[in-house]
Design a protein around this nucleic acid. Sequence first.
RNA 1: GCCUCAUUAGCUCAGUUGGUUAGAGCGGCGGACUGUUAAUCCGUAGGUCCAAGGUUCAAGUCCUUGAUGAGGCGCCA
Length: 482
Amino acid sequence: MKRTKIAEILRTEPIDTEVVVKGWVKAFRNNQFIALNDGSCAANLQVVVDFENTDPALIDRLKYGAAIGARGQLIESQGKGQRVEVKAAELTIYGDCNPEEFPLQPKRQTLEFLREHAHLRFRTSTFAAVFRVRHALAFAIHKFFHERGFYYMHTPIITGSDAEGAGEMFSVTTLPLNKVPMDENGAVDFSQDFFERATNLTVSGQLEAELGALALGEVYTFGPTFRAENSNTTRHLAEFWMIEPEIAFADLHDNMDLAEAMLQYVTNFALEHCKDDLAILEERLLNEEKTKPQHERSEMSLTEKLRFVVENNFERLTYTEAIDILKNSNPNKKGKFQYPIEGWGADLQSEHERYLVEKHFKKPVILTNYPAAIKAFYMRLDDPKEGVPGPTVSAMDILFPGIGEIVGGSQREERYEVLRKKMQEMDIPETELYWYLDTRKFGSCPHAGFGLGFERLVQFVTGMNNIRDVIAFPRFPGNAEF
RNA sequence: GCCUCAUUAGCUCAGUUGGUUAGAGCGGCGGACUGUUAAUCCGUAGGUCCAAGGUUCAAGUCCUUGAUGAGGCGCCA
């Protein structure tokens, strides 16, 4: 007989039919009640064992974590706490689970402990919920773009360009590391390498996505990204997933509208499709915050926060306006900022971003038109504007409470000469990026795009504080286990 | 990379001013109970106090160095 997933049984409740369920034992109570979970949903199904007519040796193997199957009638539950249960006629043990050796215990475990047992942490209700929500968000992203006529574009993982300027890169090579061939100048002779040139893992698919957008109109990438930065924070990974839409015939405002609509769409998708999982995560967050002092606790519950983002427009303001607000803010006047706001031109520190998002506006914020000097070469130079002390670019960063920067994007510099000049100023070799410049030479048009850190989105929606807890096997400095 | 804090039983933690035999809860194991819901009740085993060195009559406790973990900052998504 074919097994039925527990999600299906709980949805359709086929009372008085025989079912086969298979899953892992989450609890075995009173010598007769198995809480069975098969990962298809957050809820467990209760399997009732007739302990008086079942082999005691078999009952003895119904340990926490064991993989089992049960065949029997689905009946209305004879007890409280659940609507239906399976009256087991036959039990099968697929995989025993020795409780003396199994690292997980049927009790609360710290996230730090589970992080060190990442191969088993899917078995916990928290991580099962996180990864189901992660799936839902990934699916929602594809759905959102597909519905809007975007094409999903696969940009290369291995890149020959080291001029993308988005951070330190991981080298890709088949050269023998114990005997690297050198050329006559004493430099590594990459002509002997697999690709006959130096190659790296991608730090962004943006430049390639732009090429696609300038023919297909609207495209997006959704793939892994690698940064060899020595970053040790709760919001950085060496390997993470990024969504990078790129839209032709669009300016910064179209870009902001797209990003905001997308974040609201996928958040709403999770609210609608992951109710049980979000309930588990909300409860977890609530318990975690109980250990914090009152003033550090959030004013809203997890789902309230998500609903707030879906129902309210993001606050849009320019960098110049933000500097004004920060300069006149209480923490700046009272010297509370570690980095006081001196004036126009400096990059904002995370304490400043947090002040704007969490204290001043209390909602997601889109900051735009940053000084050109602190942003990437490909961002479009703005026309000079009265009251703005220096040149700016059509950049935008979306800041989320608790997460910080979740989106970074811009309108792209589409003017050939302006882009070339900018590249020269920033020491970006034209020969490396001739193909990028070509798009500005042949049928260039205004276009824009952004990068969304997928794990940061998952962090926001699940309420998990550490980015290492929203990806199955996190990669970070000193760690590539599993 | 920088700063701060932590490391004691399988897990989460307590351990007073440096003082005799290092404790608790949960989990495990054994038993009881049998419509339970983190089941409950009784009993029981379980320790390289992160590592190395030092101070001291005496170190889980103080000092030095290192390892690992966590948080903050920087880099960013």
